[in-house]
Amino acid sequence: MDVLRYAAFTTHPAGGNPAGVVLDASGMDATEMAAVASRVGYSETAFVEPLGQGRLNVRYFSPETEVPFCGHATIATAVAHAGVHGPGDLTFRTKAGIVPVSTTVAGDGSVVATLVSVQPRTELITEAQLGDLLKVLGWSASDLDPALPPMVAYAGAWHPVIATAEESRLADLHYDMADLATLMDRHGWVTINMIRRESDTVFHSRNAFAPGGVVEDPACGAGAAALGAYLRELGLIDLPAALTVRSGHHMGRPSTISVTVPECRESGISVTGTAVPIMHTPTEK
């Protein structure tokens, strides 16, 4: 069984968010997938069951849990698949639903992948939930940007979105893993999407992923899609919108995610990026 390793949302193996990819996981059960993901140690490893005609069953495992959808591992899987089968249109069947994915070859020869999320949703975060979250993160209410009110957003997985206007606040990420994991498990949150708005269309993001056994995702495609849904729902961007989400530089793994937000609230959010191999022929024994 070959476990490919790709860095997504970057053009350099030392940047982006690493993902494991198993292009043919036919016959593997959840226990085996979880064990492989734990050995690989990345925030996500994607396991593919080919169904033919560009249709793929895909499951996503972190070192400690399975998640319904993962954006960066989807981009990595699509690029890896294109490397073997050529670019084109794919249909990912995930636990979150159907996710169309397309790959094209750019002028420099890199493979670019675009996914379209399942139908997004948003919900209010309660005062108690927000208070508990801020306490675990070590934030105070005064750290929040009043122009970007806290909310929980979904585009395949649930992510609280909390914003600050201060780079120093975003740069200072310290929290108790067990406490945050317990809180997130209680509410079904996959990552905490902490953001800062640089301009009308550029955002900086950090994503804590305590339930997966990972302090932080260097780049979270699912979180970026949820951010697009959040901004659309609250009328905080002009539509249609082309956004840039920058993340990972606090971890030394700079990442760039392109997000397209259509006008229709029922339409999925598009997330685009490339991915590059971290190792040429990695193999899990």
Rank of each mutant, 00 (worst) to 15 (best):
D29N: 15
A153T: 06
G213I: 08
E216M: 13
G88Q: 04
N57R: 15
P218C: 15
T256D: 06
A7Y: 02
D238R: 07
G52F: 09
A7D: 06
E64G: 00
L56C: 05
A34D: 01
E127Q: 11
D185W: 09
H159E: 05
R5S: 06
G27W: 14
P50Y: 15
V190Y: 00
A222G: 13
C220M: 06
S199N: 09
V118N: 10
I75K: 03
F9T: 12
A210C: 04
T283V: 14
G71A: 02
L23P: 00
L124D: 08
G20A: 07
R246A: 00
H12F: 05
G54P: 06
E166D: 10
A157K: 02
Y230F: 07
V152T: 13
V79H: 05
R206T: 03
D217L: 12
A78I: 04
D2Y: 06
T65E: 08
L227T: 11
E266N: 07
I237Y: 01
R196V: 06
T122I: 14
A219V: 12
E284R: 12
L173H: 06
V136W: 06
N57L: 12
A7H: 02
G156Q: 03
L130R: 09
A171M: 01
I98V: 11
R186S: 04
A14T: 11
H12E: 11
V261S: 03
G188H: 01
T164M: 04
L243Y: 09
E44C: 03
G86T: 12
N17Y: 08
D172P: 00
A241Y: 14
C220H: 02
L234E: 00
R55V: 10
G20N: 05
T256V: 14
D89S: 07
Y230K: 08
A141I: 09
V152Y: 00
P240N: 11
S110Q: 14
R39F: 04
D172A: 10
R253L: 09
P160H: 11
M33F: 07
A226K: 07
A181N: 11
T91V: 11
A46R: 11
N207K: 05
V215K: 15
H12M: 08
T104P: 00
I237M: 07
G248K: 05
A153E: 07
V48I: 09
I162W: 01
P160Y: 13
M1D: 01
D200T: 15
S199G: 13
T94V: 05
G20E: 01
T272D: 07
N57E: 07
I192K: 02
T260W: 03
V152I: 14
V21W: 03
G213M: 09
P18I: 14
L130H: 02
E266W: 10
V40Y: 03
E32K: 14
A37K: 11
T260I: 08
E123F: 00
Y154H: 15
S255Y: 10
Q53Y: 05
D2R: 15
T283C: 08
F209A: 13
A224C: 03
I192Y: 03
